[in-house]
Design a protein around this nucleic acid. Structure first.
Lengths: 258, 258
DNA sequence: CGACCTTTTGATTGGCGTCAAAATCTGTGG
DNA sequence: CCACAGATTTTGACGCCAATCAAAAGGTCG
């Protein structure tokens, strides 16, 4: 992780033209009538450059976001050792900054991986908006539950899987999430997909060092299970990889409530 | 972990008399008018004996529950090694069995620690009920978000903290959660509280073996930070313990949405 | 009292971390 | 289009935290 890079100041964010609200997963399932309500709630759109911080753990932060395009991540940093734990990778449709702690500050940091386009919503409008739009509230329950599932999977990896199993898992999780969440991914034939995160990111997501991640990835490549270079990853043997990871696609379904 | 014990058959569950719906955190904040609706939704109450399985990963399961009293846990088991990862400790007010995978089966197992009293709700009534009761949906968003926070804290512990830091964290988390969630805990003076989980449970929650947990707990005791015996734990030096754990009470707040 | 948990202790091992440095890649400015 | 700086990947040597294995001691409950 390049900490300097991700600490770029937030002022590098810029507003941009209107976004198509329908694309935001929070509102995707809204009927046309309640969409007007949602339009009124949306505040503005932001473009975040690659590897830029959006907010930091401990900050007061008055907006929450949905990802329109790009990859991001949320993380915590241990104050004694400086070690980073990535809590979730963010893809189009994901929520950022929903959670606050009791004192109203952010319990984790958030940053971009690639350029990120976000739709921003003022936090103080959130609760009234949910109360007025049951469909949105139900959708939000769905999204939060999906986030629980993703986090639990990573906890299982960090706590009880070997490095090889965990890394295989992360790769498959991201492959299926990209398929679900990235509109342009339909053009990914033959199980190859854009993979903009570093080996250090992978390690920080499941509690390993970049060095060890590198050794395991090379092992997976030498076994002919995956291939990767230039931020693009190809899964060569999905069955074998899934077996190692104890993974199945059900585990990353976006909408558990249906 | 005594796997035999937790695999007791589900038939040992018994129905019991009506529970006071208001006590269930899902409905705690309901106005009187929508309470009637909620009453109609509630189905029955169950008593689960200690160390008994409620449902198993991969099962079809048509109910979800809120905890009325007692301690429980949800967990996953690695099919290759049999290792268990505890995903969450369950206390009064917590949800059980909300999540299902894409195929409609449970993505994790659930079991009791102590005797557990649950309120059961039929899953197929959930979505319509949320749609008709925006207050309940908002409350549910809150609860799911709290579960995300708890899981992220454990991920941080499993991935990036030492055994000592993680164990100190778990102890403090449970101390504050019991204060918040267990009605009778007000009688806990001097930072002592009932602590019915085993050292193996602690290890399974943060990715350690029972042997190593034992060594670290003895270390914490010899340093005068905690004392424990007979399923009761006393925090002797909360400041020092919190500093080791990088813990603060904000991290376990029950209702992030306010 | 007896069976089964749970905790405790010791000896040994190993997966992954740490440290260090080289090789390769990537973006940026001249 | 090249050169350079910084980021990322790769490699090797070595060390340690926690796992593993084994067994005894202490608790708990029918």
């Amino acid at each position: 992780m390049n900490f300097n890079a991700i600490e770029k100041v937030q002022s590098s964010m810029t507003k941009c033209s209107e976004c198509e609200v329908r694309h935001s997963s929070l509102f995707k399932k809204l009927s046309d009538s309640s969409l007007g309500e949602a339009e009124g709630f949306r505040k503005e759109q932001l473009i975040i450059p690659p590897r830029t911080r959006i907010f930091q753990e401990g900050d007061q932060h008055d907006y929450l976001y949905t990802v329109f395009s790009g990859w991001g991540l949320i993380y915590k940093t241990a104050s004694n050792t400086g070690k980073r734990q990535i809590l979730q990778f963010l893809l189009p449709g994901d929520l950022i900054g929903f959670q606050t702690s009791a004192s109203g500050v952010m319990p984790h940091s958030a940053g971009s991986v690639t350029e990120l386009i976000l739709c921003a919503y003022p936090r103080n409008h959130l609760k009234p908006m949910l109360q007025k739009n049951p469909e949105v509230a139900v959708q939000m329950v769905d999204m939060r539950s999906r986030d629980v599932t993703l986090c639990q999977n990573h906890l299982m990896a960090a706590g009880r899987k070997t490095a090889k199993e965990s890394i295989a898992f992360i790769i498959l999780e991201l492959f299926y999430r990209v398929q679900q969440q990235v509109p342009s991914s339909s053009k990914n034939t033959n199980d190859a997909f854009d993979f903009p995160i570093t080996q250090e990111d992978i390690g920080d997501a499941i509690g390993l060092t970049n060095v060890h991640v590198n050794r395991v990835i090379k092992e997976l490549m030498s076994e002919g299970l995956i291939h990767c270079n230039k931020k693009r990853l190809t899964i060569l043997n999905k069955e074998k990889l899934s077996q190692i990871a104890e993974f199945n696609p059900d585990m990353v379904i976006a909408h558990p409530l249906g």
